Simulated scan of single mutants.
Amino acid sequence: MELLDVVDENGCPTGRAVDRETAHREGIRHRTAHVWLMREGRNGVEVLLQKRSANKDSYPGCYDISSAGHIPAGVDFLPSALRELREELGLTAKPEELIYCGQRRFSFSTEFHGKPFVDRQVSNVYCIWRDVEPENLVLQESEVESVRWMNLEECKAAVRESRIPNCIFLEELDMLPNEN
Rank of each mutant, 00 (worst) to 15 (best):
R148E: 15
E111Y: 03
D57M: 09
L85H: 01
R52H: 06
G41T: 03
P79M: 04
E9L: 11
T92P: 02
Y126S: 00
I168Q: 03
S67P: 12
E96F: 12
C167T: 10
R105P: 03
K115I: 05
R25F: 02
C12N: 15
A73Q: 11
R42N: 15
H24E: 00
G114I: 06
L173A: 07
S58K: 08
R163K: 13
V35P: 09
G69D: 15
N10I: 04
E26G: 02
N151R: 10
E87M: 09
E141Q: 12
E143D: 11
N166H: 14
Y59C: 06
E135G: 15
Y126F: 13
H34A: 04
D76V: 00
T14F: 12
C127M: 13
A157G: 02
V147I: 05
E145L: 06
L78V: 10
V45W: 01
D57N: 09
E97L: 02
E9F: 10
R25D: 05
G41R: 04
L152F: 01
G11P: 14
G102C: 05
S66N: 14
W36V: 01
L137R: 06
E9K: 13
R52C: 14
V45P: 05
M175V: 13
V159S: 03
P177K: 09
R130G: 15
L85Q: 03
C127Y: 11
Q103I: 14
A23N: 13
A17R: 00
C155Q: 00
A23Q: 09
S123L: 08
E87K: 15
E143P: 00
A54G: 14
G61F: 08
